[in-house]
Amino acid sequence: MTSNIDNTLIHVTVTRREDQTDEIAVFDLSAADGNVLPAFEAGAHIDVVLGPELIRQYSLSNAPGSSSYRLGILNDPNSRGGSRQIHAELKAGAEVQISAPRNHFPLEMDAEHSLLIGGGIGITPMIAMAYALKAANKSFELHYCSRSEAKAAFLEELKREFGEQLVLHFDDAGDTGRINPKLLCAEAQPGTHLYVCGPGGFMDWVIEQAKAAGLPDKQIHFEYFNAEVDISGEAFEVYAEASDVTVQVGPNESIATALKAAGVKVQMSCEEGVCGTCICDVIEGIPDHRDHFLTDEEKEDNDQIALCCSRAKSARLVVDI
C-alpha cells in the first residue's frame, strides 16, 4: 500500500491563542517536551489529531525557520466537527498531537515572479510563501481576498511585513476592489507562477481565469483543503489483495466505507479527496478519479486511487491494502 503519512505524532502545547476576528483564531504550537519542532518549507501543512476518527489538515502560516508552528483556523459553520472542536477546546496551555509537516504545495523558487492569491482562510499558506520569497529577495505579489476588512485576519502583520507587495481585495468595497485573476495573469511577465488557496469555488474560478489568460498549467499551483465530492455511480467490486477481502461498493458508497465495514483498516482524514491519506496502489482495473489530490499526470497513470471518494470505471478493482 502506498502511504503518504508519517505515523510518528508530535505532542505539542498551544503556547498562544489569539482570536483575530469573530471567526478566525490563530494558534502558536511548540513541542511539549521542549525539543525543536521539525523544520518546514513554505506551503507545508500538518495534521491535527482531534480524535481516533477526527484528523484535520491546516497550513503553517509563519515564516519557515520559525521555532514554533502557527495555524490560522476558521470556525467554519459547515465544519464536520474539526474546526468547531478546535475553537472550543484549544486554549493557551492545551496539548494536542500533530504530524510532522508535509508539503504538497511547494514554491518554485526559480520563478521570475510569483502571484500569491489567498481567499479567506486560504491566506495562511500564502503568508509562509511571502516570507520565503521576501527572504530570498524574489519578485512577488500577495493578494488577500476577503468578504470585508473585519473578516480578515493577519492584516496588521501583512501590512507591516509586505507593504506594497500586499494587495487587499474586500467584497464589501465594491467591484473596483475585486481581484481580476485573468488580467493579473495576462499582464504578468513570462515565467510567472500563480499559487492559490481558499474555498473550492473561489479556487476553481481563479484557476479557470489563469488558464484563460494563457498561463501554462505547470505554472499554476493550488491546494484544496475542502472540496465537494460526488461518490455516486454504478456498483462495482473491489478486491483488497493484501487483506484478501472482496467487497461490493454500492451506488452511493465509498470504497473506504465498504472496506471498513468488511474489517479492512483504511487510513482516512479529510474524506473529501484532498489530503492524500487514503491513497492506495491500484493493481488491476481502471479508477474513476474524483479526488483533488493526485495530479493530472498521476491520474492518467491509473496506478493509484483515493479510497475515500473515487470509484471504478471497470467492473472490478484490485487494490493493495
Rank of each mutant, 00 (worst) to 15 (best):
V247I: 07
I207Y: 04
S243R: 10
G214Q: 12
D230E: 12
V196F: 02
D244R: 13
A235C: 09
L183T: 10
Y224C: 07
H221N: 12
D244E: 10
D175N: 15
S232C: 08
L183F: 09
A242K: 15
P181Y: 08
Y224A: 06
V196T: 12
A235L: 01
P251M: 04
Q219D: 11
P251S: 07
V196W: 01
F222V: 06
V249T: 03
D244W: 06
Q248C: 14
E228T: 13
F222N: 06
I231E: 00
E234F: 09
V249H: 02
E253H: 03
F222T: 05
M203A: 08
D204M: 11
D244S: 12
Q219L: 13
A186I: 04
L215T: 04
K211Y: 08
Y195H: 02
A235E: 05
V206Q: 02
I220V: 10
Q248H: 13
S243D: 14
G177L: 05
A242I: 11
C185S: 10
E208G: 09
A210S: 09
G191Q: 15
C197N: 06
P251C: 07
E223G: 01
K218N: 15
L194P: 00
Q219K: 10
A240P: 04
D217W: 05
A235F: 00
C197Q: 06
Q189P: 08
M203F: 05
A242L: 12
E234W: 06
S254Y: 06
L194I: 03
D204R: 11
A188M: 09
F225L: 07
H221R: 14
G200Y: 02
E228H: 11
G214W: 09
P199Y: 04
V238G: 02
I231D: 00
V247C: 01
V206N: 01
L194Y: 00
V206A: 01
A242S: 10
Y195D: 00
M203R: 03
P199C: 11
